[in-house]
Design a binder for these strands. Structure first.
Lengths: 258, 258
DNA sequence: TAGTGGTCTAGACCACTTC
DNA sequence: AAGTGGTCTAGACCACTAA
């Protein structure tokens, strides 16, 4: 039979319960490792392991030299199709439309921390999506989005060189070509975006991603692959995003097909 | 400055690289802990920690008494709106439509492992979605879906009692009211589903979920909240799903709104 | 400076798998 | 029976934080 739970798991379960019931409040510090070790009559190692378990469950974060803390819930941004709405990126005489969309009930988007544009050889996925030869040159516009000073997601857009050459998309200055700013530029060159396909999945971050985005242990990422097409079905942008899972929810509404 | 990576992290990085380059093939066994400890000149504890890191990254699973193995990639099921298509659940004279949808390029769906129907008090979320008083009784139809004998996701549907009383939805026998079978039943009682909203997010599983679905360490879950409405906008079903992240990708295609 | 988490060791014992 | 991972200990030392 399955052997009973270990001591570390019991301690983890104990602390987990205290967090879930609010006995240990969100953001509050857990008892010190040495104290817990004495309290449970175990070695420090065992308590460390218990806290490690909770860390990998995303319930706890630790601050070296300071303590272990029940993880705070972050404000969640709801991502729906409306975030791509024309009224959000199309340049009109009126510059209005601030916060009347259910899309962004929360804080408005911050500026991009980084924006980097490179001409790179297309890998297999990108080539297939854009309809070019694998290995041929494509533009890659990589951004890291931040909120309140912490990175929340990356987004890398790929374009066929002929589509965007000479436009501000290729201009690495973090200005006009903002989140959906690329759509305005594509419209300007006669390739107005019309349809979007988003493929969404989740996984644990790679070691590189965890480092680059400073992802805490126990935090998954959501991977988004976005294909943007004109009304004629021509793919004009292929984009790849990596989002901190705890900060977003995606919402889609559609009619049941026949 | 940030202190350099620890020995355990270095060993983890080493093994990670071997897995990513294919030097350790998918499904292959890693060297034994005792061997690695000797090879790196460290204690077994340190190697254990390294493997624990990889486990929490989802790269490795361990089998007690057997070894640690590079995790296999599972076949991924692509979930698009087509899985709710009328042709899939509407009872017609012809019983055809097998595998001609791009939706299910993979293996056809297995039967439900469990199907349980209960009358329970609605919690706040369910009550709000169904438009009933919190605490009032609603039907909850809970299912656990399996594939090749392993659980891949749970799905719990909530209904207003008046909508489904006396129908086969309330009949706990795992038969007609299959995945989308509930839609047929709702249609029969004059509440044909027309529009769906899906809210999607990811997180680490709770301890309970990990136990119930036998989720390996390092595997996130994707949480889906589905609201189904009639053409008139009446909510006829509210459903909550918990999916193993590594087995699914969600796909949505829509026109850019104005 | 005192208190905290992080890491590592050497050894022990246990539980499971494989043959 | 031999080999494997899982857990735990007691103690040491290090690195960071906070007062």
């Amino acid at each position: 039979m399955a052997h009973s739970t270990t001591t570390a798991q019991q301690i983890a379960a104990d602390l987990r319960a205290q967090i879930n019931t609010g006995e240990i409040a969100e953001g509050a510090r857990l008892p010190a490792v040495r104290g817990l070790a004495e309290h449970y009559g175990v070695s420090r190692n065992t308590v460390n392991k218990a806290i490690n378990i909770l860390q990998n469950e995303g319930l706890v974060t630790t601050r070296h030299g300071s303590g272990a803390y029940a993880r705070m819930a972050y404000p969640i941004r709801r991502l729906g199709p409306d975030r791509y709405a024309r009224s959000r990126w199309q340049i009109t005489t009126v510059q209005a439309h601030e916060n009347e969309k259910p899309d962004s009930e929360a804080v408005p988007q911050q500026g991009h921390q980084t924006q980097e544009v490179n001409l790179i050889p297309a890998d297999k996925d990108v080539a297939r999506a854009l309809g070019v030869e694998p290995g041929s040159q494509v533009y890659a516009r990589a951004r890291v989005m931040t909120r309140d000073g912490v990175a929340t997601h990356t987004m890398t857009s790929y374009y066929r060189p002929g589509d965007v050459e000479g436009t501000s998309i290729v201009d690495p200055r973090p200005g006009i070509a903002g989140r959906s700013g690329g759509f305005q530029v594509l419209t300007d060159v006669g390739l107005p975006p019309h349809e979007i396909t988003e493929d969404i999945s989740a996984r644990m971050p790679t070691a590189d991603e965890a480092k680059a985005l400073e992802i805490p242990p126990g935090e998954p990422v959501v991977e988004v692959w976005r294909t943007t097409r004109t009304a004629e079905g021509r793919v004009i942008e292929y984009a790849h995003g990596v989002h901190l899972a705890s900060r977003f929810v995606w919402s889609f509404t559609y009619d049941i097909p026949d």
